[in-house]
Design a protein around this nucleic acid. Structure first.
Lengths: 192, 192
DNA sequence: TAGCGTTCTTAAGATACCTTAATGGAATAA
DNA sequence: TTATTCCATTAAGGTATCTTAAGAACGCTA
């Protein structure tokens, strides 16, 4: 269960076998049924969370009650309301399982302890946060400058693996269009 | 010239008079004429930059040569290609003066020296970075869920001071619409 | 002052996207 | 299994936004 997590860390920073064991002992598994919440708006987000299995969504709800998906996460991804975690303020986002999922999470306090023992982990999370920032920047610019069809094709190119795990109406929410319009876009592409 | 900078820091963290003087000695002024670049895509961004006077824009250029403004900055704001600064990779954005501007900047190396001497500054920049992240998240969700008119009214509500310093076609670029459409939106609002 | 570039506006026609509603298939629960 | 809910598709008509083109207002510079 922890292979994916350890592999994910080793992609960016080297860790010893002992450190790997320490990390595994520090993360606790959370098992989510479909539609179960990992975090809800208003709650405090005190854990860093890594998806070991399954598929989840990070989204907000606007004044009209409409849902806007900011990010998906599948096995091998980190997922969080990062601002809420970092500032220790109440979350503005929801994190909910799309399929039955296993999440490995570590409490902020335990993570800080780990930082003392495994200094490179500090670097690991700094890089992950920076990557999250640049991904968000790209998404912002793309959402304003590209057509829905381009955004859809972009998504397929980058995240074909995610597309196969999520219902189409959620992808529509992520892309910022109605499910009907996404359906029409797909038909257009089919017909060339 | 440094009053705005010192005031900006004091809003978030307390600093002594000595520390204030040290900070002022560490930042160097850069004077920009209209349309002059503070940073260009491909260059390295090795400075943290604070706008003392004037107005600048942070933007990218897409494959078609079209400009997309991610952020404006006026006196009292920090402006940077933050990802490029943090990762020390080549910038993907341009920063250019809209009006004659004065920028106070500090090199990464000098800033790291300052962090050793004024520990609270570390906290200050962490908070600033986090605020930048959450602002970007809001912008992303708003750009996908709101009409151009709503985004325009939102902008006026938040940044009426910026709106008075920038030409309308740049605001259109920031909002993700054509100048003609923004003009039509304004006419609509005028006519109630 | 005259001329020129920059910015904003207006308008018409085209395209993108939305709303609503209906249908059928697939997944889920009783 | 049957009933029920959820989801994807299709279509029609409406609204939002874009493209193109032209002209007006403003400010800069010769």
């Amino acid at each position: 269960m922890y292979d994916l997590l350890i592999g994910n860390i080793k992609e960016l920073v080297p860790i010893t076998e002992d450190e790997s064991k320490l990390i595994q002992k520090s993360f606790e598994p959370v098992y989510l049924k479909k539609k179960q919440f990992l975090l809800q708006s208003g709650e405090y987000s005190n854990h860093m969370r890594f998806i070991s299995q399954g598929c989840v969504k990070l989204y907000s709800i606007d004044e009209l009650g409409a849902e806007h998906i900011l990010q998906f996460g599948i096995g091998g991804w980190w997922i969080n309301d990062l601002y809420a975690y970092l500032t220790q303020k109440p979350a503005t986002f929801f994190i909910q399982a799309i399929t039955p999922s296993t999440v490995l999470q570590i409490h902020r306090d335990r993570l800080n302890e780990l930082f003392d023992k495994i200094h490179r982990l500090d670097r690991f999370f700094r890089i992950k946060t920076q990557n999250g920032y640049v991904a968000l920047q790209e998404r912002t610019i793309n959402s304003m400058s590209q057509s829905a069809e381009q955004r859809y094709l972009d998504f397929l190119g980058r995240y074909r693996d995610i597309e196969q795990q999520i219902p189409q109406y959620m992808l529509a929410s992520y892309l910022g269009v109605t499910p009907e319009h996404l359906s029409a876009i797909r038909k257009n592409i089919r017909d060339y």
